[in-house]
Nucleic acid binder design. Structure first.
Lengths: 340, 340
DNA sequence: TTTTCTATTTTAAACGTTTAAGCATATATT
DNA sequence: AATATATGCTTAAACGTTTAAAATAGAAAA
C-alpha cells in the first residue's frame, strides 16, 4: 500500500510549514490569518495530491475516535441486526462509525469485547448487556465512559438506557390471550437473571392473575441460550404430550418463537384453534407461518435512534443526568392469536 | 472520562525511561537486555495501575489498525448479517476488529463508506460491491489496498473474491423444476448490471433451453432495489392475472423471495400444486411458508471464513497473486418445489 | 592503570496531526 | 520618531507509542 499523502507532503511541495497547511485544511484561515494566495495554493495542491486526513493521527491528538462500540448478543439475530442498521445510519449522520461484536450472552466474551473496544479508544458504547455483566457496565460508568444500554438494563446500575416497558408489554399480550378465552396459557422464556426477562415473566403472571387464572409452574418454560434447541424441544414435549396441556403460548423473544414454531409446525397442532400464539419481537418468518403470528412489536427504529442520540449526548455532556428512553411496544394481532 | 494510564505514567512512577517500560510491556526484555528486577517492577506497576495500551498510538506508529472494513448492501438482510457474524468471529481470532457499513446498493454511499474507512486507515476491505462500483474497487486495488469481494465480483477487475458459481447454481435449480415436469418457469431477479445476477439469469435460461422449454420474455421479471415492493407487486400481478401464467417460479435472492411469497400467500395460489418454487439463499421464513420453500443454499460460513482468510493473506502478502474462492452451493429440496 | 567488554538504561526521532506562542515585517497611531 | 497594531508565517511541543543509536557504569582484560 503506497504511502498516503500527509500535510507534510503538501507543505514540502510548497515550501511552507506544516502548520500553515493544517490551518487551511481545517478552514481556520481566518483565526490563523493565513494569506489568501498561499491558502489558495495549499488548497489546490491538496486537491492535486488528493490529500486525505489521517484520522488515526487526529484521534491520537484529540483523544476522540468518533467510533461507537456496539455489543449485542448476536449480530445475526434479525432483532439486533435491524437495530445495528439503524444505529449505523444514525451514527454516520453524526460523523461516527460503528464497530460491533457479539457476546453470545457470555459475560466473558462481553468483557473481551469491552477491552478490545476500550483499547481502541471508542468514544462510547451501545450495549445489549449479557447476564452477569453488571460489574462490567458499572466499571465503564465509573471510568466515565459513555454507555447506553439497549433492550436490557440493570436497575442497580445508573445508566442511560433505551427499552420498552417489559412488564406492561407482556401483560398486554397475555391479557389479550386471556380475554379471548384462553384458560391455560404457557410461556417460553430464557433462563436468565436479566431483569427484562424477569419482567416479561412477571407481566405474564400478573395478567394471568388479573384474569383469575391460577398460574401453574409447568406452564412456564425456560431455555438456556447455550442450548436453545435442546431445551425448547424438551419444553415443548412436556407441554404437548401425551396431549396438549395448554391452549395458548406466549414466546418471550423471536428466537424462541422460531424454535417453538418449528416444533408446532411438525406436531399437527392447529393454530389458533388448538393453540393461540403471541410472540415478542418481529421476524420475517412470522408472516409465513400458516397462521400469521401475532407479536408484541418493539420499534427498532426508536431503539436505534434513541441509543445513538443518548450516547452522543453523553459524549458531549459527560456529567449530565442519566436518562432512560422508554420505547413504545405495540401488539400486532393476526390470526395466530385467533383473529377478532 | 478520566485520563488513561500510559507508558509515561508507569515510567514516572518508577523513575525510569518510557523506553524501558515499552520493552518490558512488549516482552522484548531479551533483545533489549532489560534487568530482571526492574522488569519485574515494571510489570507489577503496570498491573497495579491497570495499564491498557493505546491502540490508536500503536496504529499511528505501525501504520496498521488491525481493522477490517465491511461493506454490504444492507446489514439487516439476514444473508449479510449472517456473513457479518462469521466475519466478526473469524477476524477477532486473528486480532482484527470489523467496522461495517451498508451501501443500500448505491454507488455513492459505497464511495462514501470507502472514504470514511480509508481515512480511518482500515487494513483491508471485505465488500459485497454495489452496481457501478467497479472504478471504486479498481482504485483500491491500484492503491494496493487489500480488498476481497464477496457474493458479487467484477470480471474486469482482478481481485481476491469469494462467491459461488452462480450460473451453475441457477441452472441446477431451474433444471430441477423442469425435470419435475414444470413447463412454464418464471424468474424474479434484480434489475442490475452486476454479473452475479446476470449469471443467475443465464443459468436460468440455459436450463430452460436444455430442457427444450422456449424462454418467454414475460417470464423474466426484474425488480429495482430502490423500490422492490412496487416492482414485485407489478411483476406478480402480470404473471398471476387474469390467470396464473406460469407453473414454477425461481427467485434470485431471499429478499425477492420474501416479497413474492407475501403476495402468493394472499393470492390463493397453491404451492406446489399450482406453482412450484425455488429460491436463492436462506431465510427463517422459508421454513414457515405453508409449503416449506426449497432453496439454493450458499454456505455463509464458507463465504465469511474465506473472505477473512483472503483479506488477511493479502494484508500479509500484498504482492501475491489474486485468488478466487468458489464456494459450493447446494440445492435444498422441500415441498415448495413438489417434494419427490 | 588504562583499555575493552558487557550489561543496563536513556536519548532522540518518528508516525501525522493540532495549536499556543513567537518572530518578523509592514502599516497605523501617537 | 517612537510606539502600537496588524499581518503572515514558523517554531515547538504535544498526543502515546516504537526502536535505532548513544550513553553510562562496572567488570574483566591488557
Amino acid at each position: 500500500m503506497e504511502k498516503k499523502v500527509s500535510l507534510k507532503d503538501i507543505a514540502a511541495h510548497l515550501g511552507v510549514s506544516i502548520t500553515l497547511v493544517s490551518y487551511v485544511i481545517n478552514n481556520k484561515e481566518k483565526e490563523a490569518r493565513v494569506g489568501p494566495e498561499i491558502a489558495e495554493k495549499i488548497r489546490k495542491t491538496a486537491r492535486e495530491l488528493n490529500y486525505q486526513p489521517n484520522l488515526i493521527a487526529k484521534s491520537l491528538k484529540s483523544g476522540k475516535t468518533n467510533t461507537i462500540g456496539l455489543i449485542v448478543a448476536d449480530i445475526s439475530n434479525p432483532f439486533f441486526s435491524g437495530i445495528a442498521r439503524i444505529i449505523e445510519d444514525e451514527a454516520r449522520k453524526h460523523g461516527y462509525v460503528v464497530i460491533f461484536g457479539s457476546s453470545d450472552e457470555s459475560a466473558e466474551k462481553s468483557q473481551d469485547l469491552m477491552n478490545v473496544f476500550l483499547n481502541r479508544q471508542v468514544d462510547g458504547f451501545i450495549i445489549a448487556p449479557a447476564e452477569h455483566t453488571e460489574q462490567q457496565v458499572n466499571a465503564l460508568q465509573n471510568s466515565n465512559i459513555p454507555v447506553v444500554l439497549i433492550d436490557r438494563y440493570f436497575p442497580s446500575v445508573k445508566t442511560d438506557c433505551v427499552h420498552i416497558n417489559n412488564f406492561q408489554a407482556a401483560y398486554q399480550a397475555v391479557d389479550h390471550l386471556a380475554a379471548s378465552g384462553r384458560k391455560k396459557i404457557a410461556m417460553m422464556a430464557y433462563e436468565t437473571t436479566l431483569p427484562h426477562m424477569r419482567e416479561r415473566v412477571e407481566g405474564y403472571k400478573a395478567a394471568l392473575k388479573e384474569n383469575d387464572i391460577r398460574f401453574k409452574n409447568a406452564w412456564l418454560r425456560k431455555a438456556n441460550y447455550q442450548h436453545i434447541t435442546k431445551d425448547v424441544t424438551a419444553a415443548m414435549a412436556a407441554l404437548l404430550e401425551p396431549v396438549l396441556q395448554v391452549d395458548a403460548f406466549f414466546f418471550a423473544t423471536n428466537t424462541l418463537a422460531v424454535e417453538c414454531l418449528k416444533i408446532i409446525n411438525r406436531s399437527g397442532i392447529r393454530v389458533p384453534d388448538d393453540l393461540a400464539i403471541i410472540s415478542f419481537d418481529e421476524n420475517d418468518a412470522f408472516d409465513f407461518f400458516y397462521a400469521p403470528v401475532s407479536y408484541m412489536s418493539q420499534s427498532i427504529e426508536d431503539i436505534g435512534k434513541g441509543a445513538v442520540q443518548l450516547v452522543i449526548d453523553r459524549i458531549k455532556h459527560p456529567r449530565k443526568k442519566h436518562s432512560s428512553v422508554v420505547v413504545e411496544a405495540k401488539l400486532v394481532l393476526r390470526s395466530s392469536s385467533g383473529k377478532k
